[in-house]
Design a binder for these strands. Structure first.
Length: 563
RNA sequence: CGGAGCGUAGCGUAGCCCGGUAUCGCGCCAGUUUUGGGAACUGGAGGCCGCAGGUUCGAAUCCUGCCGUUCCGACCA
């Protein structure tokens, strides 16, 4: 490609609206252009990279036996009402105003409806169906460029099986395909176990690109054997030991004590584990809201995903007015004693049967001490509800946990029969009995994968492409197109690269100073720069610069091709 | 959805408090000189100052409403 024929609107300065590096660089290198909040157009340079990523995915999906589809982005609202997701998604789904249609945020329903009418015998399975398509989600707050956008490209794949064993096989095959894909994309990634309750599936894993701008937190053990999304991570920690002093609980005055830290100071203790933290959650149900009080150690945080895993996704923290109504106190003075029996009380496993605890008295500015959960809180249940912390031991005590931020680039999970049952997608088994098709669901964000790569591979000059997703392998920089010799040599190299089918970009711009060309080349990050200028040409040489290392080699002009 | 900020030429901005017809840099066009790390000079083009209403002789500037956008938080199959 000749640069004079290529639309590459590079920017010298950082756009004021971009904050994260990948966003800045994608705008500056002319890959994307924002049209409105969370919506971006792909420009030629960006599209080249997205296509490279897509083709790697296509390659691996096909190798795994996938069939490529291209489904409609529009679908009837009714289809989503049937599976209940119209309500589940709510405002996150774009709805067409002048026709009863929605823009699909994902395609389980549409694929299922195709399967329903065509896969009717156990002999029709297994199948892997996929597509690479625009998805639409009305994100409340798009951010970080294409990392969270309202329209984005996703590869979504679905395994369709007649048996649960078949699902396991498909899932493993897709997991391997995903590892291949992200490896070929040159991405540093970690596979973590993930929260799946929200989508109604069982096993679930996420492919995470570690990055400081990631919105997810992942937990990895130092020996690398354990990795998990923080939402579901577990660790080993000693339980709070019983003291068996059997002291009666008693109220004491704690003026203006709102937080655990203030309470610890007030009672002059450094050990916050016995200062039980109480939080009230609401399980929103059509037949009426249920309230629950959740207790964790004072130095722990409640893991809301784990709560959702136990009680469903419609769990939310109670509002301040609700707290007062239910407990008679504001946040900071709430505790497990003396509540209405309708309120379920659950505590973290670390507090199982613990005694001599201090917690709120359900009366503002008062706490209770010497609470014995075993004695004083009949009907209490214990579950793993805490968020693990950096430095804790793995549950087998063999290693320690580290927490890092990461970007979710892929997600695979065993979906099961939720949608096939809702839409009546059934097949006849060998005994002639009807069964719902068993689904797996597997997604990859194309732009997000690309942006994650850039987050991991750039410097203060620009992007550093490598491997299969590099849009060009080499850029020829002709330093002076008005010098006939330089021009002719450059043209010669360009033709030679084309002949050898090597992706090459030729900066053949005249009237552009060398400094501009060097900076543009560094910005757009082509791995190898072939620099042709007067200085070296006098000696019959040209220069090769490796973008990543900045390493320069002066070579005979005839030998340059073997870079 | 809560909090904060911003909207002036393609991009980045000054002016706004204190009202008088818009500043500077980059980029762009023409010409001359230049050509190894974002050139110099000369001349030029380009603006419903986000939108609507109000106050005023007069509004980019003051007031009201709206819209857009960014960030933090909340939320996120």
């Amino acid at each position: 490609m000749r640069l004079t024929q290529f639309f590459l609107p590079t920017l010298k300065d950082d756009p004021v609206d971009a904050v994260v590096d990948s966003h800045k660089l994608m705008l500056r290198s002319g890959m994307i252009k924002q049209i409105t909040s969370g919506v971006y157009s792909s420009l030629p340079f960006g599209l080249m990279v997205f296509r490279k990523v897509e083709n790697i995915i296509r390659d691996e999906m096909n190798a795994a036996g996938g069939n490529e589809f291209y489904l409609s982005a529009l679908s009837p609202t009714e289809l989503w009402a049937e599976t209940g997701r119209l309500e589940d998604y709510g405002d996150l789904m774009f709805r067409i105003k002048n026709r009863d249609l929605v823009l699909c945020p994902t395609h389980e329903e549409v694929f299922t409806s195709i399967a329903k009418s065509n896969l009717i015998s156990y002999k029709d399975f297994p199948k892997i169906w996929y597509q690479i398509q625009s998805k639409f989600r009305n994100e409340e707050r798009p951010r970080a460029g294409v990392l969270r956008a309202r329209q984005f490209t996703m590869k979504d794949a679905y395994s369709l099986d007649a048996t649960w064993e078949g699902l396991d096989i498909a899932y493993e095959r897709m997991a391997q395909a995903y590892r291949n894909i992200f490896t070929r994309c040159g991405l540093e990634f970690v596979v973590v176990s993930a929260f799946s309750g929200a989508m109604g599936g069982s096993a679930s894993q996420e492919f995470m690109a570690p990055s400081s701008v990631g919105e997810d937190n992942i937990v990895i053990s130092e020996d690398g054997k354990y990795s998990s999304n923080l939402e579901v991570a577990v660790s080993f920690k000693e339980k709070v030991q019983r003291k068996n002093t059997d002291l009666k609980y008693e109220e004491f005055h704690t003026p203006n004590i709102k937080t655990i830290d203030e309470l610890a100071e007030f009672v002059k203790t450094k050990d916050k584990t016995r200062l039980a933290k109480s939080r009230v959650f609401v399980n929103v149900k059509p037949e009426g809201n249920e309230f629950m009080l959740v207790l964790v150690c004072g130095d722990d945080e409640v893991n809301e995903s784990k709560l959702q895993g136990f009680f469903g996704i419609n769990i939310r923290p109670a509002h301040n007015e609700e707290l007062m109504e239910i407990t008679g106190a504001d946040a900071g003075s709430i505790g497990p004693i003396g509540l209405d029996k309708k309120i379920k009380i659950i505590a973290d496993l670390l507090l199982e049967d613990a005694d001599e605890l201090i917690s709120g008295a359900n009366k503002n500015d008062y706490h209770l001490k010497n609470i014995d959960l075993k004695r004083d809180v009949p009907g209490i249940e214990y579950k793993d509800l805490r968020t693990v912390k950096e430095g804790e031991q793995t549950s087998d005590k063999s290693s320690k946990l580290k927490i890092t931020k990461a970007i979710e680039v892929g997600h695979i999970f065993k979906l099961g029969t939720k949608y096939s049952e809702a839409l009546g997608a059934k097949f006849l088994d060998a005994e002639g009995k009807e069964n719902p098709i068993i689904f797996g669901s597997y997604g990859i964000g194309i732009e997000r994968t690309t942006a994650s790569f850039i987050e991991q591979s750039h410097d203060d000059k620009g992007i550093i492409w490598k491997g299969e997703i590099a849009p060009f392998k080499v850029i020829i920089i002709s330093l002076n197109q008005s010098n006939e010799e330089i021009k002719n040599i450059s043209e010669g190299f360009y033709k030679e690269f084309l002949n050898r089918k090597i992706d090459v970009l030729f900066d053949d711009r005249a009237d552009v100073r060398p400094g501009v060309k060097f900076n543009d080349a560094d910005l757009i990050g082509i791995p190898v720069q072939l620099i042709i200028g007067e200085k070296n040409l006098k000696e019959g040489n040209v220069e090769i610069k490796i973008r990543k290392t900045g390493e320069r080699m002066i070579v005979r002009k005839g030998e340059a091709i073997e870079y």
